[in-house]
């Protein structure tokens, strides 16, 4: 299966009518360097879509194209059914945006910055701003340059949410947030979804995407690898297991099990990777006395490797 086919197949199978973001054969080169290639992506109204890939995969390129900061080399991108370039002002009016590398006017206080952006947007209810600031525990009186990275990030979130946008585009949104604030942020995303807002969130952290997203698109080296629902993703997820037994166990009990790979047996310890459900391996282990079972969170590379094997590098 080629990478292009993987992407196209998903788009062909999806309903186009309720699509909020549509890219068709979107390609962006920076001189000789590839940003994204032949990207066919579709984000549906009301969903939380996770855009997952390693750093430098083309996530930010895609997002910056949607916001008309950069223009496609070829192909098109549309948001709300409007062309990302020709109708950028109308699109941006309905988008809340948080960049991956947030830079804000250092001399302004949070309040001044939010007033400025609210004035440029128009129609922002200042009560919403106050509520968001309270919720995130953000002090609006401090100048931006005096804010910690976490607090700067809160300011970024407030300006993205304050005008109740139809579409939130959030590039690596939890970077720099402490765990408590991450919880609050996930809660905000789910509430936004309840209100009918759509979210497009990029990340390189799989568990983050898994917990809030409805669907996940994988991008790697500028190309869309696959789009999956989170349910499918979990079914396919690769776990690295470490089983510790009371006594030595024979290797034969663990190889040739469904979905189990890379089996290493060292005396009473078995290490392996498991794609999909853990049922087979757990049942095999149950024949012996299990002392400990450690399941490592699957990471992105493991998933890529599981899908596409060792030669998953795209040239």
């Amino acid at each position: 299966m080629s990478w292009e086919l993987a992407g196209k197949h998903e788009v062909d199978g999806a309903a186009v009518t309720d699509a909020l973001i549509v890219t068709e054969q979107l390609t962006k080169y920076y001189g000789q360097n590839l940003g994204v290639a032949d990207l066919d992506l579709e984000v549906r109204e009301g969903e939380i879509f996770g855009f997952l890939g390693p750093n430098g995969a083309g996530k930010t390129t895609t997002i910056r194209t949607l916001l008309d900061f950069i223009r496609p080399t070829s192909g098109t991108a549309s948001v709300f059914g409007l062309d990302s370039h020709k109708n950028s002002v109308d699109i941006n009016r309905r988008i809340g945006y948080l960049p991956g590398e947030l830079e804000l006017y250092k001399k302004m206080t949070g309040q001044e910055l939010l007033k400025y952006f609210a004035a440029l947007r128009g129609g922002v209810n200042w009560l919403d701003v106050g509520m968001l600031a309270d919720r995130l525990g953000f002090d609006m009186t401090k100048p931006v340059k005096a804010l910690s990275s976490g607090n700067k990030h809160k300011l970024g979130l407030i300006q993205a949410f304050m005008h109740r946008p139809d579409l939130l585009i959030l590039d690596e949104p939890t970077t720099g947030l402490d765990p408590l604030m991450q919880q609050e942020f996930y809660q905000m995303l789910l509430e936004a979804k309840e209100k009918g807002q759509t979210t497009f969130i990029s990340s390189h952290i799989l568990p983050e995407v898994e917990r809030v997203c409805d669907r996940v698109g994988f991008i790697r080296e500028g190309r869309l690898v696959e789009i999956l629902t989170v349910a499918d993703l979990k079914a396919k997820a690769v776990h690295r297991l470490e089983l510790v037994f009371a006594a030595n166990v024979p290797q034969a009990d663990f190889i040739d099990l469904e979905g189990v790979k890379d089996v290493v047996v060292e005396d009473n310890v078995v290490r392996c990777t498991v794609a999909g459900g853990l049922d087979a391996v757990v049942k095999a282990a149950a024949k012996h006395e299990v002392v400990n079972l450690i399941s490592h969170e699957p990471n992105l590379e493991d998933i890529f490797m599981a899908y596409y094997g060792e030669d998953s590098n795209v040239s």
Binding site: R64, L67, D68, V89, D90, N92, P99, L102, F117, L120
Partner: peptide, 14 residues
């Protein structure tokens, strides 16, 4: 260069 221009242009401002 300071990185704030894209934040400005993320507003509905041509």
């Amino acid at each position: 260069e300071a990185g704030t221009l894209s934040m400005l242009l993320a507003n509905p401002v041509p």
